[in-house]
């Protein structure tokens, strides 16, 4: 079955960049695109153990007359068919429920706040909650449409990093793009990482998909990140650690997203390869 990518269309130039990014992703991965053109500034997403209300800012409702036309133009240019989502259920009369059984979702770095806040190092709170409770990975786009030609997976050894790695394999298999793995070693030897791969029975796939495994033994994480090519799609797992540790030490994801302008594909803690 085809994977599905969910996209919320914002009828502004900024939204155009995001949609272009989604179209590119869908074409590369062979996913089908599902577009929601909002009619209300808010909607709900019911996840397994959480419900997230997404408050869009008014720019999402910019001239609803042209929205559909603009979206279709972009789709035609990209030569891709998409399905437009009509919400079926409403929690309240102006509060539609959006289904959550997608395989990917595309978000700009912030969907609920003013676009003036867009910048590196800032991911809106709603996007965070989506990442945290979604079973699908979230594609966080760069601000400007940017083609990617390779895949870079950050692998830190945690259970979630393993999930991210599997996700990387999946993207690599679908898009036939080279995959490289980046590991910043923290007081652990090279062997210990290989041990993890072995325990997860991923050796075969590792050989098959991964072109390079960069292991950084010294230097700061922030400095080493420079080695990630600018045309790579960065795949990483988020919130692999407990909440408390995140507050005190920060997480890799925060560092990465505050340094890199690439497109990010983030696998949250609930992400599971059920299919």
């Amino acid at each position: 079955m085809d994977a599905q990518l969910f996209h919320i269309f914002r009828n502004t130039p900024l939204g155009r960049e995001t949609l272009l990014q989604s179209i590119y992703f869908c074409k590369k991965v062979g996913a089908s695109l599902i577009i929601y053109i909002p009619e209300f500034t808010k909607f709900l997403m019911y996840f397994e153990n959480d419900v997230v209300q997404i408050d869009l800012d008014n720019s999402y409702l910019t001239s609803p007359v042209t929205a559909l036309k603009h979206a279709k133009e972009l789709l035609d240019q990209g030569k891709i068919k998409a399905r437009f989502l009509e919400p079926k259920n409403f929690t309240a009369s102006t509060l539609p429920d959006i289904p959550t059984n997608f395989d990917f979702m595309c978000c700009p770095r912030s969907i609920s706040d003013l676009s003036s806040k867009i910048g590196l190092g800032y991911i809106g709170p709603r996007v965070r909650r989506i990442v945290n409770s979604a079973r699908f990975p979230v594609l966080i786009t760069s601000h400007v449409f940017k083609k990617w030609r390779s895949i870079a997976v950050f692998f830190g050894g945690s259970a979630n990093a393993v999930n991210a790695l599997k996700l990387g394999f999946r993207i690599s298999r679908a898009s036939e793009m080279p995959l490289s793995v980046y590991t910043h070693m923290e007081n652990a030897s090279k062997e210990s990482y290989e041990e993890i791969i072995k325990n997860e029975n991923l050796e075969e796939e590792m050989d098959h998909y991964v072109t390079e495994w960069h292991m950084f033994e010294r230097g700061k994480f922030e400095e080493n990140i420079y080695d990630v090519p600018h045309y790579a799609l960065v795949v990483l797992g988020a919130y692999g650690h407990g909440l408390i540790r995140n507050i005190f030490f920060g997480s890799k994801m925060e560092k990465i997203q505050s340094i890199i302008t690439n497109n990010l594909l983030i696998a949250g803690p609930k992400y599971a390869l059920t299919r």
Binding site: Y46, V51, Q53, D55, N89, T91, A92, S93, D97
Partner: peptide, 24 residues
């Protein structure tokens, strides 16, 4: 808080019957 008007009880019943009582 960006919620709809109304007294809310239908919302409670709705979420109970469709989403296992998930509420914001």
């Amino acid at each position: 808080v960006k919620e709809g008007a109304g007294h809310g009880v239908p919302e409670v019943i709705y979420s109970v019957s469709r989403y296992g009582g998930l509420m914001r």
